Simulated assay, not measured.
Amino acid sequence: MSETIRVLITDDHFIVRQGLRLILKTAADIELVGEATNGEEAIQLTAAHQPHVVLMDLRMPVMDGLTAIEQLGQLHPKIAVIILTTYNEDEMMLRGLQLGARGYLLKDTERETLLNTIRAAARGESLFKPDILQRALSVQATATPPTKLTSSSSADELTPRELEVLQAAATGERNKEIAFRLGISARTVKAHLTSVYNKLGVDSRAAAIAIAAQRGWL
């Protein structure tokens, strides 16, 4: 997108907000429009400032991040939410993705990863760090035994190719990378993912991966 990306930070720890603020100030194409200390404030500030991207902590007083993500999805579905997570919030992160978050970041992530993830979210895309996602999927697999993908485990069964594309997406591969490895076009990859979204009743790669992980498909 050509316009400046408007970002809202939501975290109850001052030092986290300060660190993010300093990083965002170094990017000419990103503008910090507000800082919230809990989910309730995030909803209020989102309505007031209409950011393109909201960085959302999960554990906060008054209103937690999951509740805020769900409400923002209902009130402002076009605004991208990126989860701010730590190493002990894997299950919450997956739940947040299923509720509509566009992606996730560790709070100690490096500058370029933070900025690139924000830019991707503002464009309507999702960027995943494979190591974080694989760890989260491992936790989910331990909690939920894998189930065979059949019509009994899903209202609409995914085709083998759709499942293959979804599993590749879950490792962090982008459409062009998936296309190259599978020997198909990027347009075909996009079509498969769109079909997956329709069958699972979601509108993003993040939500599809979260649901697939919770059902033991990955």
Rank of each mutant, 00 (worst) to 15 (best):
residue 33 V to C: 06
residue 80 A to F: 11
residue 45 L to S: 08
residue 188 T to M: 05
residue 174 R to M: 09
residue 173 E to S: 14
residue 73 G to D: 05
residue 185 S to E: 02
residue 125 E to Q: 08
residue 114 L to Q: 04
residue 206 A to T: 04
residue 21 R to W: 02
residue 35 E to W: 00
residue 199 K to C: 12
residue 101 A to D: 00
residue 144 T to H: 09
residue 42 A to L: 11
residue 189 V to N: 05
residue 198 N to R: 15
residue 106 L to S: 11
residue 86 T to A: 14
residue 74 Q to T: 03
residue 175 N to G: 08
residue 114 L to K: 05
residue 139 V to A: 01
residue 92 M to F: 04
residue 216 G to T: 06
residue 195 S to Y: 01
residue 124 G to P: 10
residue 218 L to I: 13
residue 49 H to L: 09
residue 52 H to F: 00
residue 39 G to M: 04
residue 68 A to V: 08
residue 120 A to H: 02
residue 118 I to C: 05
residue 16 V to M: 01
residue 27 A to T: 06
residue 43 I to R: 02
residue 211 I to Y: 04
residue 144 T to L: 05
residue 85 T to L: 02
residue 172 G to N: 00
residue 174 R to F: 14
residue 198 N to G: 13
residue 97 L to S: 01
residue 119 R to N: 06
residue 217 W to D: 10
residue 158 L to W: 10
residue 141 A to R: 13
residue 99 L to V: 03
residue 82 I to E: 07
residue 104 Y to G: 01
residue 212 A to L: 09
residue 159 T to E: 14
residue 8 L to M: 02
residue 159 T to H: 03
residue 105 L to S: 11
residue 47 A to H: 15
residue 96 G to T: 04
residue 208 A to P: 07
residue 176 K to V: 07
residue 214 Q to K: 13
residue 88 N to W: 07
residue 187 R to V: 12
residue 107 K to I: 09
residue 78 K to V: 12
residue 124 G to A: 12
residue 42 A to P: 10
residue 30 I to Q: 06
residue 122 A to S: 13
residue 131 D to S: 13
residue 52 H to D: 15
residue 7 V to T: 05
residue 129 K to M: 08
residue 126 S to G: 10
residue 167 Q to T: 09
residue 17 R to L: 07
residue 27 A to I: 01
residue 210 A to F: 03
residue 16 V to E: 09
residue 95 R to T: 10
residue 125 E to P: 07
residue 127 L to A: 12
residue 119 R to I: 12
residue 28 A to G: 04
residue 47 A to M: 05
residue 180 F to V: 05
residue 57 D to E: 09
residue 30 I to H: 12
residue 21 R to P: 00
residue 8 L to K: 09
residue 167 Q to W: 03
residue 181 R to W: 01
residue 92 M to R: 06
residue 188 T to Y: 00
residue 140 Q to F: 02
residue 58 L to Y: 06
residue 55 L to C: 03
residue 154 S to W: 11
residue 160 P to I: 09
residue 78 K to G: 08
residue 6 R to W: 03
residue 43 I to F: 13
residue 214 Q to Y: 08
residue 85 T to V: 07
residue 57 D to M: 03
residue 166 L to P: 02
